[in-house]
Computed example of a mutant assay.
Amino acid sequence: MDHVGIVVEDLAAAIAFFGELGMEVESEMPVEGRWVDRVVGLADVRVDIAMMRTPDGHGRLELTTFHTPAAIRAEPADAPANTVGIRRIMFAVDDIDEVVARLRAHGADLVGEVAQYEDIYRLCYVRGPEGIIVALAEQLG
């Protein structure tokens, strides 16, 4: 897998949110032209994208904001975790409480609560900008 793409309305907020999860901006650029129209099946596409990578360099996100045509919301921003489609991206973290506190500074909220799975993990879902759900996993021991 090369990367996961996420369409957002507020690119700066999404970059800040994923930055708190340790991701780093690899590149930012405007994208437009006939070639992108052909790839995505839309006309007159004009977007800004930010490629972000995990610190280990193995994972990447492409955050995209559409200027034209306008983005369309396919579901409510607060869609529940059992909504069909890609629901979350999971991040391994060292201190789940500390990461949740940092994400709250960017407007994120817990979807449920932090829960422990046996003596192996502490886990939670956090809803961030654009209703994006990220899962956090802190390995115990």
Rank of each mutant, 00 (worst) to 15 (best):
M1Y: 05
H3P: 02
V4H: 14
I6S: 09
V8N: 14
L11Y: 05
A12S: 14
A12L: 05
A14M: 04
A14R: 08
A16W: 08
A16Q: 14
F18S: 10
F18I: 02
G19V: 09
G19I: 05
L21N: 02
G22S: 00
G22A: 02
M23R: 13
E24V: 03
V25R: 03
S27K: 12
M29I: 02
P30Q: 11
P30Y: 05
V31W: 03
R34T: 07
R34M: 01
R34L: 01
V36N: 03
D37R: 00
R38D: 12
V39G: 00
V39E: 01
V40F: 01
V40C: 10
G41W: 06
V45M: 02
V47A: 03
D48Y: 07
A50L: 01
A50K: 06
T54N: 07
P55M: 05
G57M: 13
H58M: 14
H58V: 11
G59Y: 15
G59E: 15
L63M: 00
T65I: 01
T65D: 02
F66Y: 13
H67K: 12
H67V: 11
H67L: 13
A71Y: 00
A71H: 05
I72C: 07
A74V: 03
E75M: 15
P76R: 12
A77Y: 15
A79T: 04
A81Q: 15
N82D: 15
T83Q: 12
V84N: 11
G85N: 08
R87S: 12
I89W: 10
F91Y: 14
F91P: 07
A92L: 13
V93D: 03
V93Q: 04
D95M: 01
V100D: 08
A101S: 02
R102F: 07
R102I: 02
L103M: 08
L103H: 03
R104Y: 02
A105D: 08
A105R: 13
A108T: 00
E113V: 10
E113Q: 11
E113I: 09
V114Q: 12
Q116W: 12
Y117R: 04
E118P: 01
I120R: 08
I120H: 14
Y121R: 13
L123E: 11
L123G: 11
C124L: 05
C124V: 06
V126H: 04
R127L: 09
R127D: 11
G128H: 04
V134L: 03
V134S: 04
A137T: 09
E138W: 08
L140M: 04
